[in-house]
């Protein structure tokens, strides 16, 4: 199976601070890859490089076979930043319509996809409400809808479940699994270790480096632990000793 995302020896240096340090990983087509690690591990920096928002200091990153940054590949990328990235003074429809127009969708396409997405995130009745009038959870769902509107082939979701209540988090992972089944590739960052069991493969990040990689089951078996949090701690201590 081909790799939709490929990172080789990627490094990112901010004034002497290595945010990403010799990172290499691959995400296969139709796979959910979870990048796990504490705050400051380099997850967001890696995603921003993949989305073309930052230039790597060294190494290479490819998305759908194209070396990034490249303006040609953005049409097929869906990026959901950590922040909600919504216009609070616009309605749900106005936000979706704006992002749709930016991605070159026709009015008809926007209408059709908006209906389907609002149904997916269960917010069909909120179409004409201002973002400011929505609860935090509803805003997160609209943010996801904006990311999916142009039907990207690869999704980069940066901490999509931060600040989201447990019920909504479960719904989000259901959406992600549905999208994966529809053939969409996803790279998701999170620092909620328990969520990572939904991912097909997981990469543990610490200090800008990938310290372990595998399926949830593989990582648990290799570390003889019962939770991914414990597995992360085992790898983290091993890394420290090295």
């Amino acid at each position: 199976m081909k790799d939709d995302v490929c990172i080789r020896n990627l490094e990112k240096d901010f004034d002497g601070f290595k945010a990403v340090n010799n990172l290499s990983l691959r995400v296969k087509h139709g796979e959910i890859y979870g990048l796990l690690g504490p705050n400051g591990a380099g997850k967001t920096t890696a995603i921003r490089i993949l989305c073309g928002l930052l230039r790597p200091s060294s190494g290479e990153a490819y998305v759908l076979g194209t070396k990034v940054p490249d303006p040609g590949v953005v049409q097929n990328i869906g990026y959901m930043p950590q922040e909600l990235a919504l216009y609070r003074n616009l309605t749900v429809h106005e936000n979706l319509a704006f992002y749709g127009e930016v991605f070159g969708l026709s009015k008809q396409q926007i209408e059709t996809r908006e209906q389907a997405l609002l149904k997916l995130v269960d917010l069909e009745t909120s179409r004409n409400l201002l973002i400011d009038e929505l609860s935090g959870g509803m805003q997160h769902r609209i943010s996801l809808a904006c990311t999916l509107l142009h039907q990207p082939q690869v999704l980069f979701l940066d901490e999509p479940t931060v600040g989201v209540d447990p019920d909504l988090r479960a719904s989000f992972w259901r959406y992600f699994e549905e999208l994966r089944d529809a053939g969409i590739t996803m790279l998701i960052t999170t620092h909620y270790m328990d969520e990572a069991r939904h991912c097909d493969r997981i990469g543990f990040m610490r200090g800008g480096r990938l310290i372990a990689e595998g399926s949830a089951r593989e990582l648990l078996e290799l570390t003889h632990t019962d939770s991914l949090e414990d597995a992360f701690l085992v790898y983290s201590r091993t890394e420290e000793l090295q």
Binding site: G52, L53, V74, Q75, P81, L84, A85, L86, V102, F103
Partner: peptide, 15 residues
């Protein structure tokens, strides 16, 4: 910049 919309836009075809 602070709401993240700029990041979303710069990761889109919008120049």
């Amino acid at each position: 910049r602070t709401s993240g919309t700029l990041f979303r836009l710069l990761a889109s075809p919008l120049k």
